[in-house]
Amino acid sequence: MANEFVKAKTKEVRKSTIQKAVIIALAYVGVIALVSSGVLGYQYSSVLISVAVNIIAAVSLNLVTGFLGELSLGHAGFMAIGAYTGALITLHLNLPAPVEIFLGLAGAGIMAAIFGLIIGIPVLRLHGDYLAIVTLAFGQIIASILNYVKSITGGAAGLNNIEEYTTSDHYLLVLTLVVLSVLIMSNIINSRYGRAITAVRDNYIAAEATGICIRNYKIFAFVVGAFFAGIAGFIFAHNVGVIKPSKFDFNMSINILVFVVLGGMGSIKGSIIAAVVLTVLPEALRGLSDYRMLMYAVILIVVMLFNNSKLRKRLVEESGLKKLFTKKKGEA
């Protein structure tokens, strides 16, 4: 019995490795083709980077919200830490670009992870609504601190003229970062750790009874989520070139949460698709001028309703799309 299970598992792993390789290759070919052929123009080339930032942010929040099952409303706070740490590193060091980028990325991720740990240890004793409120407060605290430590962070004015390492001119670097981040996170989900994390979500009493140390796994998921939020923050800062504390507010956290919820909690590809569509949408709606954000909100509501409607179920069942939408158990 055990042997068969192992065999089946190995086969599954091998298959999913091939799939991942194919998707990654497709992503590279697709993006390179789109950018170099000039179809995207200036506008959509720059949107590509926003898409990348949002993908990493959404997938990392999904780790906490979708897989661990804890609502976090402070994700923008971790992005802020990553953005500021990375920007301060690249602003103050005068090293060759690749070295600066590497140090900045490492610093951004690690600093955000450290904050994730500091916040996580006391906070993850709480559940559900309580945790959500505390993470919300955390996001606000970060913004206030960034406002207050004027000598380092520039206060309300923020940091300007950050080296633009991750603009659309460097899309391959950004794409690689996205691929690596998503790959690492999806591998974590499919590992022993990931199974433990989802076990905690599904039934923490049962999980505890089987010997899973709930606290450690919760903190682990939280810290990994924070790390990649920091990476997303780094890319954000070095794309826009200007960061202000007011940017990383409650709204930004909610926006990321929207990607996760719309894409489906606990679905990495859902998060990716939602991040792509919802980032491109407001840009594509520019033609509507004044009604742009209104239409965006309306579309959001319609998609949300559609996602939970019987109509969708029927459509999915009748058409050949069933395979695309049905979720298998334990699948990422």
Partner: peptide, 27 residues
């Protein structure tokens, strides 16, 4: 194999969405 098709089609749909949107940007 079914899973792979699933992924492929998702990727293709995403690519098509982007490229169709891109068309309206240029003038």
């Amino acid at each position: 194999m079914t899973k792979m098709k699933k992924f492929l089609s998702a990727a293709v749909v995403a690519a098509m969405t982007i490229s169709s949107l891109a068309g309206c940007g240029t003038s």
